[in-house]
Structure formats: C-alpha cells, structure tokens
Amino acid sequence: MQLSDCRVVLTGATGGIGLALVEHLCAAGAQVLAVTRQPAALATLVARYPLQLHQVTADLRTSAGRHAVVEAARHLGGVNLLLNGAGVNRFALIEQLDDHDIADMLTVNVIATLQLTRAMLPILRSQPHALVVNVGSTYGSIGYPGYAVYCASKFALRGFSEALRRELADTEVNVLYVAPRATRTSMNSAAAMALNKALGASVDEPQRVAHEVMGAIQKDLNELYLGWPEKLFVRLNGLLPGVVDRALRKQLPVIRSFIHTHENPPQ
C-alpha cells in the first residue's frame, strides 16, 4: 500500500508506539483517525497536521466506544487501513494480579480488538484493497515469566491474525501481524526496564518500531518480527521449546527479584 493513499483508523494513538505511528503516517500524507482516551496528548500533532489528523475519544472496551469509531470512520469517507495498536501490560507474577487486572488486560488486548475489527470489516471490504494491522509482541510467540497474562493475550492476537488472514484470503483485505521486542514506552514499568538492562536485553525506540511498521505496510507483508536475536528465539521456541525452558529457568531468580524489589505500579 502507498502510505499517501491510506485512510487509517489507529487505536492506542497516544501510546509510545502509537504517537510514533501517527507522526510517520501523517508525514507520509495519510489521513489518520486517531483513537484515544487521552486526546490532549495529540495536541502537538493535531496542530502540525490539521488537515490530516482527526481524532475520536473512545473507550474500546465499550460497545458505545467501538460504535463511535465506526461512525467516525464512515464520516471520514471510509478507511482502508485498520491499525490495532491499543494495548496494556503489567509486569507481575500471576498470583500478584487480581481478577480485574486479568480481565482488563484480556479485554483491551484481545476482546476489544476482535470486536472492533469485526465491526470495521464491512468498511474495509468495500475498498479496492485494505489492510488490518495487529500490533502484537515477541511475547506472542515466547511465554515469558512475569508476563503470563500479557503473553496469553498476545498469543491470542497472533492466532487471530493468522486465522483472519486465511478467512479473508479470497477478499481484498490482508492482515499483518507485527511483533515488536522490548520498546521504550510508558507501558513498561521501571521494574521491567530495569530487568531488561540487567539481562542485557535490547530495547527499541518507538520511532524505530514505527519506521519498520511503515515499511511492512508498504510491502503488504503478512508478518513482521523485530529485533535480533529475538527473531531467532521465536524460531527456537517453536522448534525446541525445551531449550528455551531451560534458559528461562536460569533467569527466574533475577526476574523474581525485579518483580519483588522494584516499584511496579499497574499500567
């Protein structure tokens, strides 16, 4: 797809990756409908791109919020790109999470995304060519201690992306699944970032992730995994999960120490 021809619904538009995506899309000439619960965070970009950047304040966990997005998309004249970027995370052992924490993570990361995609499909299918982009994670392929619920949500999103792509194979709508590795955003707590530093894990800047996503959209790819050696670990976990089991077991004391000793507020 040519970015200048894109009319985009982008959820999670005021997250770290979301803001970078908004900036890249508008700079390339796309029309962007930014979905957020924090519209003030978009003020600078709205001032910079007043003719391209539109916004709708909506809580995607609610039927009314999703309906508002669909109506705004119709008012825009239809869209040919749905970019599902909304997501929440919590670095914690599962026994540290209550029922609300678990339900909210699964609702935002999976249920609301599936429901909005379903609602948007008639609009997307009316276009000569359209694309659904689901922003997942490396943790959608590798189960990692301290992220059990987040991993569950991203594994689900990866499976949804694969199945939906096959479901729409005889239409003009494609599905791209994007799997960033650790990224420097506010969604990652201080404890999570400290753990990454202690383990020597690479952390990408949101602008780099957005740049890679733009390239994948232009190439009409099906999947995009970011980072090395993370791509290798994804393959290794699929072929030889026992090897990854043993490697992560050695990291467990370090992971637990950062969960228990660093401030780790809900995200």
Rank of each mutant, 00 (worst) to 15 (best):
A216W: 06
A210I: 07
A210C: 07
N196E: 00
T185Q: 05
D220L: 08
V203W: 11
H211N: 06
A216F: 09
R249W: 08
G200K: 05
A194P: 07
E212I: 04
S186G: 10
L248P: 08
D245N: 15
R208S: 08
H211I: 02
R249T: 12
A191Y: 06
D220W: 11
M187L: 13
G215E: 11
V234Y: 03
R184G: 02
G227F: 10
G238P: 06
L176I: 02
P241E: 09
A192L: 07
S186A: 15
L240C: 15
Y225K: 12
R181K: 13
L199E: 10
V178T: 13
P241S: 09
P180Q: 00
V213D: 01
D245A: 05
S202Q: 14
L176P: 08
M214H: 09
A190E: 15
V213R: 04
L239A: 09
R235N: 12
V244N: 12
A210L: 06
A247C: 02
V213Q: 08
E205T: 10
V203L: 09
A190S: 14
R235Q: 13
Q218S: 14
A190N: 09
N237A: 15
M187R: 01
L195Q: 05
V234H: 12
A191C: 06
L226N: 01
A190T: 15
P206F: 06
Y177R: 02
E212M: 11
K231I: 10
R246C: 11
E223M: 05
D204R: 07
E212Y: 14
G215M: 12
F233R: 04
Y225C: 09
L221F: 03
F233L: 14
K231N: 12
Y177V: 01
R208F: 11
A216Q: 07
S189Y: 05
V209Y: 10
L236F: 02
